Amino acid sequence: MNILISNTSGEPIYAQIVSQIRQMILQGELVSGTPLPSIRLLAKELQISVITTKRAYEELEREGLINSIVGKGSFVSGADQEFIREQRLRIMENKMKEIIDESKMLGIDFAEFSEMLKLLYEEETE
């Protein structure tokens, strides 16, 4: 499994793992039933704490993206991809509401806000 960890990122390591595995599942790189590396193996490969890896797997399990079976390991869930997408959209909407609230507090109007969003979006897709 190709997971890249950035120690300079402001994002916690467990969240980086969750984000990358989530993306692999949503993009179909990891399909239902695919076994994930054991918590210990992934921790060793990434040279991080087992506790950090365990936290990432627990978060993925809470989101319904993976299932863990004692003695067998963790596997990509058989959850409906549309259900998973809806969950992610809900999370995204909540983050967007926070950003909208912040922009209103700063006195940024919709035109300026949408221009900022457009520039950032285009910058990320290049």
Rank of each mutant, 00 (worst) to 15 (best):
S9W: 06
E59W: 03
G71I: 03
M1R: 10
K72T: 00
S9K: 07
S68N: 06
S32H: 00
P37N: 01
S6K: 14
E45P: 01
R55K: 15
R62L: 12
S114D: 13
I21S: 06
G28W: 01
Q87G: 12
T125G: 00
I21K: 06
M96L: 14
I48A: 06
K97Y: 07
T34Y: 09
Q27M: 12
T53M: 04
I25K: 00
L117S: 12
S68Q: 03
K54H: 12
Y121H: 09
M1A: 11
E82Q: 08
L120T: 05
T34F: 09
T52S: 13
K118Y: 12
F75I: 02
Y121K: 11
I66Y: 03
V50W: 10
R62W: 13
M92G: 09
I51K: 15
L117H: 08
V50S: 11
S74A: 15
D80Q: 01
V76I: 05
F113I: 01
K44T: 13
Q81I: 12
E82D: 07
Q87W: 06
D109W: 02
A56E: 03
I5V: 13
S6H: 13
L89E: 03
E61D: 07
G64Q: 05
N2S: 14
Q27I: 10
K118P: 04
E115C: 00
I25W: 02
E124T: 10
A79D: 05
M24G: 04
K118H: 11
M1H: 10
T34M: 07
V76H: 06
R85Y: 08
